[in-house]
Amino acid sequence: MFKIIHAEFLAPGIKRFVIEAPRIARKQKPGQFVIVRIYEEGERIPVTIENSDPERGTINIVVQAAGKTTNLLNSLNTGDSILDVVGPLGKPSEIANYGTAVVVGGGVGTAMAYPTAAALKKAGNRVISIVGARNKELVILEKEMRAVSDAVLITTDDGSYADKGFVTDKLRQLIDNGTRIDLVVAVGPIVMMKAVSELTRKEKIRTVVSLNPIMIDGTGMCGGCRVMIDGKSEFACVDGPEFDGHKVDFGVLIQRNSMYREAEQQSMEEFKRKQEAEHACQVEGALR
């Protein structure tokens, strides 16, 4: 059992948990993730590590509610526990002094991009961060990103905060302004990472993306997380999760991530029905 020391919403549907996990806290490096299982009948899902505190023996994870498991996870609070937390998994980000690094975080991907940005800054890079979200409410970790970046550029799809547009618009502007970029790191929705990679391919800028395929064990045993890299099969959990964005077959990733859509919808609908029923009971109880 892994105890939740603190839980808070960063945005609607996006929650940060500080979890007691001393072994993981000691070893966590930027780019790595954990797999969690909430209860006995639960599935195993990969989750982003946003930060860790080796002294306190805690890690911070950030979860966006999407399906049943992430919704359940986000219903947990300070003092609750998570049955299993295993990690840190995956290879750490390759941190070096590249020169100028642009770190792109899309939506909840910003939480995964943050430790990498911090490490790149510490390694001597000039770090320009681009944070994108659907709207103002969903922009997360702005303060944290500012603390580790030389500049932070923000876009929202609907223009409700900062500049209206997509992260690729900002990246395009940087390139057009003649900014010398040595490395781009992009973490976010698949379509965003694909768009960033297509843009930088033309400009021949080294680009690293962090993939989040379906995963079970996270140690290389099951092969469920296989992705196509340069026409070859690789496993995101042991060979990744970071890969050269110019070599990733994003089409295959999108297709494979849709494999259980029906079952996921079924789970989600049943979960919602249950919640509504519980809510109705509570209301009824309150009325009585």
Partner: peptide, 28 residues
């Protein structure tokens, strides 16, 4: 890489470890 092609390890892990054959009681 088509949907529907599994490794035996994944197929068996879903069934044995994660008890996918008891879906939706089990979530996997």
């Amino acid at each position: 890489h088509l949907n529907g092609v599994y490794s035996a390890n994944e197929f068996l892990t879903r069934i044995n470890l994660m008890k996918a054959y008891k879906f939706p009681v089990y979530d996997e």
